[in-house]
Design a protein around this nucleic acid. Structure first.
Lengths: 203, 203
DNA sequence: GTCTATACTTGGATAGAC
DNA sequence: GTCTATCCAAGTATAGAC
């Protein structure tokens, strides 16, 4: 009995995960408009009604999907950044992570949900709460990277963090729109050059 | 007869304009999801079928709306920027224009349509074509503003233009998400300080 | 050019069998 | 916990009267 209860719980967890994965896939491929319960269920190979049983509403599911992808991704960023503490190394790491995000569509999920939050205002605070850790993370990294350098007192870390996250979002949007990422790649290359220059001014 | 034909044409033009205005309003208030033919028609006080008579499909209408708002706005930017050629003046102008965009929701229209272009790929090139003039405009302004200064040879104008437009989009998204614009205001204030500093290094 | 009426499709959500 | 069947609301689009 304990066994079957455990089994039941594990199956339930597995199903939840399958649903979340399918929702992420739908968001990345078809955007918010295409991430309907029917579309998600069909693509994931399960029944549509399961979404409502496990998540109540489609929007709840999409938030759970954002939660998961954002959390996982932030952890990956934190791990990666720990290895790179000089400014040039940091830029290289950022370039690599950015390419990963672009290829996997991680940021698309966020962009689509922010767009949808106009129609569904109740999503707004939920999404904002999931973006906040990113701004904080960016600020921590920036503080460390600029410490002792000339930019540290010129540019408040909070502003730099906000701008960084905004730039990330905007770049992904434009890159997706253009269908090629040459502009992004060129920008990162320039960023790496500037970082190298700034590093020569650091203590 | 000529008179009635003229009248007919003028009425038709007026109707088109009313529909476009209502579509812009819907996009700004409710986003792409809320900009349905029914919602647009109800809010604009006209019949739903008119949309299909004048624009064929809802998406065609939304593109026409983007066309109009983007064109008008770009003209306003060009006029405003002609008056300000030093870097600090330019930043002040940008701050003012940005506040206008934010309050009027001009960028929201673009963000929503970019988001929707995932679900409707045929929108992508259309939107891209309407964004391109902005990147070009940004590049022109940047070239003039940085001419002779130290940044001119450090940062390719193309990269700076792309980054500027991306930053604009991202800032609007995050500002809308947070529900307040203190972060943006702070960032612009920092931008003005940096611009003032850079101006002292210009010839 | 504009309106009414309507065909058709898709989507959210629930009831009830299994 | 999962599936089938179904209700209802909302959307796009068109035909045809005015």
């Amino acid at each position: 009995m304990a066994r079957s209860a455990r089994r039941g719980r594990r199956d339930s967890q597995e199903t939840r995960q399958r649903i979340i994965d399918a929702a992420l896939d739908a968001l990345k491929r078809e955007g918010f408009t295409g991430a309907s319960a029917r579309a998600i269920a069909e693509h994931g190979g399960f029944n549509q009604a399961l979404i409502f049983y496990h998540f109540g509403t489609v929007n709840h599911l999409l938030l759970a999907a954002l939660d998961e992808t954002s959390g996982r991704r932030l952890a990956a960023y934190q791990t990666a950044v720990e290895q790179a503490k000089t400014l040039p190394e940091l830029l290289q790491t950022a370039t690599r992570l950015y390419r990963e995000d672009l290829a996997a569509g991680h940021i698309t999920v966020l962009n689509e949900l922010i767009g949808a939050s106009l129609a569904y205002p109740e999503l707004r605070p939920e999404i904002a709460a999931r973006v906040q850790p990113w701004v904080r993370f960016a600020e921590d990294v920036i503080v460390q990277a600029l410490a002792g350098g000339p930019l540290a007192e010129l540019i408040p870390s909070r502003d730099a963090a906000f701008a960084t996250v905004a730039l990330y979002l905007g770049m992904q949007m434009l890159t997706h729109l253009n269908g090629d990422n040459t502009a992004t790649e060129s920008l990162f290359a320039t960023g790496e050059r500037v970082a190298a220059l700034l590093a020569t001014l650091q203590p």
